[in-house]
């Protein structure tokens, strides 16, 4: 199941992300793909703020992962751009991040191929001049439920 959304500007990106965040009801893994500057981190910022976090959502490019605790959730915002080998994930204890109370937002998931939990939703963002096209692929039943609810809203 696949659905595309037209996003006129950054605000549209963060609003869609916040809607998706509100729909998550269990442990969730979301992959995000798109070129530099496409808006992956903006999407994650909208998602994390949408769950009620009020502080800064900084880029995790340098640290690889930024943790957040919101209500009963632990949110992990990954950016695997700087990985040169998926094996490096073992050195940061990647296996401990995919627990029942965790939502994992993972930018550049192909850099961690083989060591990441499977995605419920796979998002790709493309440039259309100054706006964006965001496509969501649902990979399982839970993902399909999320996507159909998101598309209806």
């Amino acid at each position: 199941m696949k659905h595309s959304f037209y996003l006129a500007d950054e605000q549209a990106t963060t609003e869609l992300a916040a809607k998706l965040a509100a729909l998550c009801s269990t442990a969730t893994v979301i992959y995000l793909e798109g070129d530099l500057g496409a808006g992956k981190t903006s999407f994650c910022r909208g998602f994390i703020h949408g769950l009620g976090y009020v502080g800064r959502v900084k880029s995790p490019t340098y640290t690889l992962v930024e943790p957040y605790e919101i209500k009963n959730w632990r949110i992990f915002h990954f950016d695997l751009y700087r990985l040169s080998d998926p094996e490096e994930l073992e050195f940061i204890g990647i296996r401990d991040y995919f627990e029942d109370d965790c939502i994992c937002l993972i930018e550049w998931p192909d850099k961690g191929h083989g060591l990441l939990a499977a995605a419920d939703l796979h998002i790709s963002i493309e440039f259309i001049d100054h706006s964006r096209s965001l496509t969501v692929q649902a990979n399982n039943e839970y993902g399909q439920q999320l996507l159909s609810d998101l598309a209806q809203k």
């Binding site: 800064r56 900084k58 880029s59």
Partner: peptide, 10 residues
Amino acid sequence: GESVDDAAGE
């Protein structure tokens, strides 16, 4: 003050 998103070097 600090960066609200990307670092300068990034």
